[in-house]
C-alpha cells in the first residue's frame, strides 16, 4: 500500500486521486444539467407539455422554460470547457480515440467481467468501452448543444424542423448511452464497484478498484509519482 494525496489535501491510506477538483466539478455541473435536460426533454417529448412535472411544480416555471434555461447553462459549460480547459478536453478526446488490437480481448471478456471484476488488461487512461462512450457522448452532447442553440435562434420555420430532427435523434441516441454510463459509474455492477469515487467527494479511488479497472494508468501514475519522489 502506498499513501497518495491530492496536492494540498490530506493523505489517505490506500487511495489514489484519479481526477483533480476542476475536472470533478466540471463533470458534476455537466451531469446535473444533463439530468435536468433529460428529465424535462423527455417530459415534453412524451406529450406532457403544459402539465407541470415535479420539477416544474417545485420551481414554478414551465418544463419548456426550465429546459431552455438549463440548456443555456450546458452551452455555457461547453464554452467554458473550451475556453478554460482545452488541454483537458484534448486529452479526453485523444485518450479516448486510441484503440489497440489488444483491446479486442478486453471487449471479449467484458460481459463476464462486469460481474466478476476480472477484466482483461488494457493500457489506457480509460478502459476501451469507456473510450467509445466518451467519444459518443462528446459528439452527441455537441450535436444537442448546437441544435438547441439553433432551435432558439430560428424559433420556427423550415430550419427549426431540421434543428428539431437533429435534437430529437441525438436525444434518442444519447439517452441509452448516458444511462449505461450512469449504471457503470454508479458502481452497482460488481466489476465496477467503487469507481464512483473517481468523480465524487475527494476523487480518491481505492487502489484495488483502480488496479482492477485501469491497471495501466495506475502503474504509470505510480511510476511518475516514484520518479518525482526519488
Amino acid at each position: 500500500m502506498t499513501t497518495e494525496a491530492e496536492p494540498g489535501g490530506p493523505a489517505r491510506e490506500g487511495t489514489v486521486v484519479r481526477n483533480r477538483a476542476p475536472a470533478r466539478w466540471f463533470h458534476a455541473a455537466v451531469y446535473l444539467s444533463v439530468l435536468v435536460l433529460m428529465a424535462t426533454g423527455w417530459w415534453l417529448t412524451l406529450g406532457r407539455e403544459g402539465d407541470p412535472s415535479l420539477l416544474a411544480r417545485a420551481t414554478g416555471f414551465a418544463d419548456a422554460e426550465i429546459h431552455t434555461v438549463v440548456g443555456w447553462v450546458l452551452a455555457g459549460l461547453a464554452v467554458a470547457g473550451l475556453a478554460f480547459g482545452p488541454k483537458g478536453l484534448r486529452a479526453l478526446v485523444v485518450d479516448s480515440a486510441r484503440l489497440r488490437r489488444s483491446d479486442l480481448r478486453w471487449f471479449a471478456r467484458w460481459p463476464k467481467a462486469v460481474f466478476t471484476g476480472r477484466f482483461a488488461r488494457h493500457e489506457g487512461r480509460f478502459d476501451p468501452g469507456q473510450r467509445i462512450a466518451n467519444l459518443v457522448m462528446v459528439a452527441l452532447l455537441s450535436a444537442l448543444v448546437v441544435s438547441g442553440v439553433g432551435l432558439w435562434a430560428v424559433s420556427g420555420g423550415p430550419a427549426f424542423v431540421w434543428f428539431n430532427r437533429v435534437h430529437r435523434w441525438s436525444t434518442y441516441a444519447f439517452t441509452p448511452v448516458v444511462l449505461g454510463h450512469i449504471l457503470i459509474a454508479a458502481g452497482v455492477l460488481p466489476g465496477y464497484r467503487g469507481v464512483w469515487r473517481a468523480m465524487h467527494l475527494g476523487g480518491r479511488l481505492r487502489r484495488r478498484d483502480a488496479a482492477r479497472v485501469w491497471p495501466g494508468w495506475l502503474e504509470r501514475r505510480d511510476d511518475e509519482e516514484g520518479g518525482r519522489r526519488g
Binding site: E49, E65, T68, L151, W152, V154, S155, G156, F160
Partner: peptide
C-alpha cells in the same frame, strides 16, 4: 407561441 415555445 413560436415552435420553440417562446412568446410570439
Amino acid at each position: 407561441r413560436n415552435a420553440d415555445h417562446s412568446a410570439a
